[in-house]
Write a protein that binds this DNA or RNA. Structure first.
Lengths: 163, 163
DNA sequence: TATTGTTATACTCTATAACTATA
DNA sequence: TATAGTTATAGAGTATAACAATA
């Protein structure tokens, strides 16, 4: 890229998206995409993607959970869970154990290897988020957390009420 | 779904994702996905998707913008812009006008029809966000807005510094 | 040589639908 | 009949790479 093009690029951020900035949804999208891209890069060296990282976390926190339950927590379809669990099982992080009371279902468990992987991944993401949000004071980060949770809940309620 | 399954589903929200809730990125994702789904439904009757809505807004705010500039604002590749602009042009909302000084480029302009479409879409999304976030007081909504903008900026700075 | 818009192609994530084996 | 997991397939959104026209 030549000097002229670089200069033009540097000038671009003069808010050509002014009409969009008024929308919470738009700002959510921009913030999310920024963060998610970095998240993926942080997890890659550990052999995880955002989806497998999330699944590993849920199975860690709820040993014995079924794939159907996992699909509800992660808000994806059962068919999508198969791929994610296949991936984690191939990596030796998770096991499908038979359920005595229901031979159709699997109980998902994190292996010892998976447990260690989780610890490393959790620490990596914690460190990464700490670095990522240095421009926000700790109370501001907590405020953001709370507002995001409440916004998601509000949106969910509104949708479910409007059926 | 029978009664037993419904009961099980109703019980599910006992925070099996506890280990994920600590991460801002996770809460951003959940909130964003909730909102984006509703956004898409709001725009559908107007013949718009989230991507074409955003592009229309930017072209409204920056008449004569080129496709390359648009790709930078929207954070997508030039090849992706072609599809979006094709869509808006087919709908009669946007025109590609030749640029005298550069015969390779197009200057994008919103037609009168497109301008009216934008007004309807803007009002629809405003109304929808107002309904969606009723659980948040107006000052909280503003605080969320500001924190999202700063979080995105912080993440961007961190990434660019870490090259 | 570099850039604009374009096309063709591929990849990721997710959804839908049909299937099996159990319940 | 209904459910758990699976498979095959398709769609949306985006990326990469190569191209013609123009700078």
């Amino acid at each position: 890229m030549n000097r002229k093009a670089q200069a033009a690029k540097a000038e671009t951020p003069k808010q050509t998206d002014m009409l969009l900035r008024q929308f919470i949804g738009y700002n959510m999208k921009r913030a999310y995409l920024q963060v998610q891209e970095d998240m993926a890069r942080t997890l890659e060296p550990l052999g995880l993607r955002v989806g497998t990282f999330s699944a590993l976390a849920v199975i860690m926190g709820s040993p014995g959970i079924s794939q159907t339950q996992l699909s509800e927590v992660l808000n994806i379809k059962r068919s999508g869970v198969v791929v994610v669990v296949d991936d984690l099982e191939r990596a030796g992080a998770v096991e499908r154990k038979p359920v005595r009371t229901d031979r159709r279902a699997y109980a998902l468990h994190v292996t010892q290897e998976g447990s260690q992987l989780w610890k490393r991944a959790e620490a990596a993401v914690q460190a990464h988020e700490a670095a990522l949000f240095t421009d926000l004071e700790a109370p501001e980060q907590r405020a953001l957390q709370e507002l995001l949770v409440r916004a998601a809940r509000s949106a969910k309620h509104t949708r479910e009420a409007g059926k």
